[in-house]
Amino acid sequence: MKRKSAQLDSISNSASATPVAESPQSSVVKTNNTSSGAVGGVSGSELSDSDVILPSVLHFKRSQLSDRYPKGHSRGRHWKHLKQIIQAENYLLYPPDEPNYISIDAPPSMYPAKKYCDITGFEAPYTDPRTKLRYANAEVFKKIRSMPDEFIQGYLALRNAAVIIK
């Protein structure tokens, strides 16, 4: 009896003591969870605010990136897009057998691409010469022909085949 009640106690203790979103403890870092119990005492609005917005001063920070790249008069502040980054990498200067971002790009498929209906997803034996949409049957064709241009372009864009007017 005694042992049982003790067990129960420990279970209820652990249940009540385990705080809400604490992660299971590892062997290396011994953490003490009791402190996080205090979080429940803070009122809801304060909690959400302090959870959402960062404090204005972060003591662990040495400098702000924006100080290094002040607005306006530095080219460094303009962040290159992936394409520009790749271009600037100049992979040609490096040994050809060294793997790089471009070399690991996948090749095109060896098999012909299967054609699927743009609307229903079924296999599509036909292509509408007017809208260039692929369709599975007459019913879909009827639908395509009564579709506004906007939707036709939307469906084409799904497979990157929309007409882009620049």
């Binding site: 498929s109 691409a113 699927y116 229903t120 997803g121 497979r159 085949a161």
Partner: peptide
């Protein structure tokens, strides 16, 4: 319906979304 497996299928067949590379 079809969407349930049509959408993940692009990982197997990227040509479905116009990416001409292998799945």
């Amino acid at each position: 319906g079809v969407e349930r497996f049509r959408c993940p299928e692009i990982v197997m067949q990227p040509t479905m979304v116009g990416v001409d590379q292998v799945g």
